[in-house]
């Protein structure tokens, strides 16, 4: 049971993007269930996961959309960038091609999201250091040049997975505090929930539903 009558104060929308097979779904699964799915099937279209986290004493609900990496789903997945507050861009440190495609993913993200969207670069499969194909320094430099946050993580061991999701949330929360992110914007990917219990019930939204087209 939560202490107050409200479960959380904010909702943040995230999307996870990157090439096929870099471990996007596994990262999501590791974050929401704290488990590693060894033989994760290819994502068809998009998948959805949630978890409530705490940042600066505020409960925040993360709504995470895990997109399919396969090229043939690009047309479908492009529609999911709309309104994302955080974008986790994933590549596989053991496959250089997935790193080389990052700029195209970044272009998509920049074009389809708003300027305040926090983009976090994740080099996944850090447990496979022996097969490494992309150095930490190189990726770090790429991240710095493009103003991205960056870690190397492992969906298998769980290393840095929690950090990536939480750091993104902290950055978004910071943007809210600084007033850079407008809470009232329906598409900013952040929704504010009242934290004070027992306030007078809000009037129901006027039911101009079926004719306002």
């Amino acid at each position: 049971m939560t202490s107050g009558p409200y479960n959380y104060s904010y909702i943040f929308k995230y999307i996870i993007i990157g090439d096929m097979g870099v471990g996007k779904s596994c990262l999501l699964h590791q974050f929401t269930d704290k488990k590693f799915m060894a033989d994760c099937p290819h994502t068809i279209g998009v998948e959805f996961g949630t978890r409530i986290i705490e940042v600066a004493g505020q409960k925040i609900k993360l709504q995470i959309w895990d997109t399919a990496g396969q090229e043939r789903f690009r047309a479908v997945t492009r529609s999911y960038y709309r309104g994302a507050a955080g974008a986790l861009m994933v590549y596989d440190i053991t496959r250089r091609s997935t790193y080389n495609h990052l700029s195209s993913w970044l272009t998509d993200t920049r074009n389809l999201t708003n300027p305040s969207t926090v983009i976090f670069l994740i080099g996944n499969k850090s447990d496979l250091d022996a097969q490494r194909d992309v150095t930490y320094e190189e990726a770090k430099q790429f991240a710095d040049e493009n103003g991205l946050m960056f870690v190397e993580a492992s969906a298998k061991t769980g290393q840095n997975v929690e950090e990536a999701f939480l750091e993104t949330a902290k950055k978004i929360y910071q943007s809210i505090q600084d007033g850079r992110l407008d809470l009232n914007a329906a598409e900013s990917g952040v929704q504010h929930k009242p934290a004070s219990p027992g306030r007078p019930l809000a009037a129901p939204p006027s039911s101009r539903d079926n004719c306002a087209c």
Partner: peptide, 27 residues
């Protein structure tokens, strides 16, 4: 359900039409 209906319809209309600083281009 009817309250949620009204809410999502409002959200939908906002997503379709509302122009904001962060989202200059609605659907």
């Amino acid at each position: 359900c009817s309250a949620r209906k009204a809410t999502i319809v409002q959200l939908f209309i906002d997503a379709l039409t509302k122009e904001t600083e962060t989202v200059p281009k609605p659907i």
